[in-house]
Amino acid sequence: MIALSITVRQGDFTLEIDERLDARITALFGPSGAGKTTILDCIAGLRKPSSGSIILAARPLFDAARGIDLAPYERHIGYVTQDVALFPHLTVRRNVLYGRRDGQKLALTAVTRMLEIEDLLDRRVPQLSGGERQRVALARALMSAPDLLLLDEPLAAIDVERRRRILPYVERVRDELSVPIVYVTHDADEVRRLADRVVVLEGGRVIRAGAPAEVL
């Protein structure tokens, strides 16, 4: 689905990855500083690789050799960042609808029901708990009908107990929608539970890749 072949240099740190991510959920797994978030930022267009290319379903998002570098708003990639970054001045409803595209088939009611946030729609962001924020951010990304969904440690900011509670929602997105997901985590249990394929990163390099059962 997404063919990723990029190099990112920053100071002493060099990130190199050459992978085809075509599973329903691909996990990028590794310790902090391995370059996981950098990869997501490059795919979303928030960061420019030093060289290489990023091709999503035959559509080049970035190609250094051909001078292609689509702006983030042209890429159709949903991105739930680690801090979720819900817009603090908008209600939950306006957050969720912010990126809705014309003519997309995904209905608000379907998404809010799936993520169980119907009752939160008229609330303001400061009134939400950590777990609720995660689900709203997920709904917001889904409502933009992305061709690919990036989840950056969506569970890192909340405690273990609440993490277990958001996993079923990610599984629902995986099973009910056809959008492929790239999921960044440093938790092996999450990888085993969610991912079809795992790419293990360390110090900016891919050290192993394959089915979670074989790799971990």
Binding site: P72, G78, A141
Partner: peptide, 9 residues
Amino acid sequence: AVAATLGAG
């Protein structure tokens, strides 16, 4: 940045 990924110019 997030608004841009949601398609806002």
